[in-house]
């Protein structure tokens, strides 16, 4: 795994740690070699760790092979973003973002085993406090399997679209104008700005000092995407045979989310189409200053 590949995963770990109130600067990261970790429970005291990963903060496995032996326990949260983790003893909380985790017969995860990515294999004789498999849920996620969650998304977006269309339709009108009439420049600005800001916030997070700002920035990016969805909903709503602009926008937003979900089901091209829509929407929001003014391209004489 290269630094560029591992850095986003480490960022997620940092954000998770910051969110849980832990100190991110005390975490230990393993990138190579074979390590045996944990406090020897049979002897009562003393760590059996090898290498430099015996700190009090979280443990991040980024490479190599780490083993928690049968007679050992790890009380700090463990994150796996690469490499292999083999648990024969006891671990409190375990989150898997990438890499491989094996929980053997007789091993215990007292808290939560959360699988966000990568692979986790739990033996029948192992004990796990609670387990959630986001990777599996995402793979199986669809409106038909989780209608309540999907309806909640549709409903929320429709509500926001309806409210915004009622209070200030001019904002949506300006952004919508850029989506329709200046799609190319919107898409270009959206793609570059979205990508660059993402990189910026990732690198901000690694200063630790700017971690909160990074989180706010990522949230703001997400907010812009949601705003652009509202605009798409408004545009769809204008084509519906509904007179009231707020109702039409709400209905349009709902239809847009459903269409986006259906688009995602087309292999490869669907994802490309979704990315294109997000880029155009993101850029349109930016070049119109969130809809505060209409975008006017530079005048070229001749």
């Amino acid at each position: 795994m290269t630094p560029t590949e591992i850095i986003p995963l480490l960022l997620v770990v940092l954000l998770l740690l910051a969110g849980s109130g832990a100190e991110p600067d005390t975490m230990d990261v393993v990138f190579e070699g074979n390590h045996t970790l944990g406090t020897d429970t049979s002897a009562g005291t003393g760590a059996v760790s090898t290498g430099s990963t015996g700190g009090d903060g979280a443990l991040v496995v980024g490479g190599g092979t780490v083993t928690v032996p049968a007679n050992a326990s790890v009380s700090s949260p463990v994150f796996v973003v690469g490499g292999d983790l083999r648990i024969e003893g006891q671990v409190d909380d375990l989150r898997v973002l990438a890499g491989n985790v094996t929980v053997t017969d007789g091993a215990t995860v007292t808290g939560q085993l959360e699988v966000i990515g990568g692979r986790a294999s739990v033996a029948d004789g192992a004990t796990v406090g609670s387990r959630s498999d986001l990777a599996g849920e995402l793979q199986g996620a669809s409106p038909t399997r989780s209608p309540a969650g999907f309806l909640f998304q549709v409903g929320t977006l429709a509500l926001v679209a309806g409210l915004l269309a009622r209070r200030n339709p001019a904002l949506l009108d300006n952004v919508g104008d850029s989506v329709v009439n200046h799609a190319a420049v919107s898409g270009v600005v959206g793609a570059i700005a979205g990508l660059s800001l993402l990189v910026l916030f990732v690198y901000m997070a690694f200063t630790l000092l700017l971690l909160p700002l990074s989180a706010v920035g990522l949230l703001a990016e997400f907010g812009i995407v949601v705003y652009s969805y509202v605009v798409f909903g408004y545009l769809v709503g204008r084509r519906l045979p509904v007179e009231r602009v707020d109702v039409a926008s709400a209905a349009g937003a709902g239809l847009f989310v459903v269409a986006l979900e259906l688009l995602g089901r087309i292999p490869l091209l669907g994802a490309l189409g979704q990315a294109l829509l997000v880029a155009v929407g993101f850029g349109a929001v930016l070049i119109t200053y969130f809809g505060l003014r209409e975008f006017e391209p530079a005048e070229i004489p001749g």
Partner: peptide, 29 residues
Amino acid sequence: ALFGFTYVLYTSDLRAAALFPALGRDAPS
């Protein structure tokens, strides 16, 4: 801005590889 970003990426990779030599053994991104 893009040049700045590009070299931030290059230098960050080199710094990370200097701190954690195991990372530097893989092919650069």
